[in-house]
Computed example of a mutant assay.
Amino acid sequence: MPSLLFDPLPVFAIPVKGRDSGFPVRRIFCVGRNYAAHAAEMGGEVDREAPWYFTKSVAHAVISGAEVPFPAGTDNYHHEMELAFGIGAEVKDATEVEAASAIFGYGCALDMTRRDRQQDGKDNRRPWSLGKDVENSAVFARMTPAAVFGGPASQRIHLEVDGEVRQDASLAEMVWSPVELVMHLSKFYTLVPGDVVMTGTPAGVGAVQAGQEITGGIDGLDPIGLTLLSS
């Protein structure tokens, strides 16, 4: 193997509750329109035939508590509070049992979005990368092992901006459960340890400004936070 021209980026790892070792992230898959009320507020509908996805770069991931610059190129930067889960075993064309067994752990996450750039993509039938794959836009709190969390049911999911509640819903509102997502996604990709899935956001998304603090949580999981600085 030839020598490298420059040092590669360090491995991004999510801290794990009760473990000294972190969860090294390989890929980030994001689920679109997994809450009917959020789909409606965005002028769309959920696809109940099958889930669909977009991706975020691991290079754009940060850990909860980060203070990051407000991104360039947007006048409409939105918060999206989500449940994320990590894959801990290789699966392809997973059965329900295999999918459940492949989920290593769960955690709170933020999918920050340049909404104006995303809308540009929608309006012009172009990719959403400028809207979704944004620096510092994939935020992860400490992950809790699945055996400890027990899996999503009707836990509350919520988000606040400067202490004001913006999103407040239940995980029971998800159209596609994590197990169903693994079963479907593994038909198209061989999922391996280190893959992360962000499961979509409930209704109540909205714009944030430089200087504001975003906090959120899901019952039974570590809370999440992000501070936006002036760019």
Rank of each mutant, 00 (worst) to 15 (best):
M1D: 06
P2I: 02
F6D: 11
F6I: 07
P8Y: 04
I14L: 06
P15Y: 15
G18C: 02
R19P: 11
S21F: 06
R27H: 11
R27C: 09
R27M: 02
I28G: 05
C30H: 08
V31N: 01
G32H: 02
R33M: 04
A36D: 13
A36M: 07
A37T: 12
A39C: 03
E41T: 05
M42Y: 02
E45Q: 11
V46L: 01
E49D: 15
E49S: 10
A50C: 11
A50L: 01
P51S: 01
P51K: 00
P51F: 00
W52L: 00
T55F: 11
S64Q: 10
E67L: 07
V68D: 14
P69C: 13
F70H: 12
F70C: 08
P71K: 08
A72I: 03
A72D: 06
A72W: 05
D75Y: 05
D75I: 04
N76K: 14
M81S: 09
L83P: 10
G86I: 00
G86W: 00
G86R: 07
K92N: 14
D93F: 09
A94K: 07
V97M: 12
A99M: 05
S101W: 02
I103L: 10
F104R: 06
Y106V: 01
D116C: 14
R117D: 05
G121C: 14
G121W: 04
R125Q: 14
R125W: 09
R125A: 13
R126A: 15
P127Y: 06
L130Q: 11
L130N: 09
G131E: 05
G131H: 03
V134A: 13
E135D: 13
S137K: 00
T144P: 01
A147Y: 11
F149V: 05
F149I: 04
G150N: 11
P152M: 10
P152W: 15
A153Y: 06
S154Q: 08
S154V: 07
Q155D: 15
I157V: 14
E160D: 12
D162C: 05
D162M: 05
G163C: 03
V165M: 08
V165G: 03
D168N: 15
A169Q: 04
A169F: 04
E173Q: 14
M174F: 03
V175R: 13
V175T: 12
W176S: 03
S177A: 04
P178K: 07
V179F: 06
L181M: 08
V182Y: 03
V182P: 03
S186R: 00
K187E: 14
F188P: 04
L191P: 12
D195K: 05
M198H: 02
T199K: 06
T201K: 11
P202C: 07
P202W: 12
A203H: 15
A203Y: 12
V205S: 12
V205R: 10
A210E: 12
G211V: 08
I214S: 11
D219I: 07
G220M: 07
G220L: 15
P223E: 05
P223M: 09
I224K: 00
T227P: 07
L228P: 00
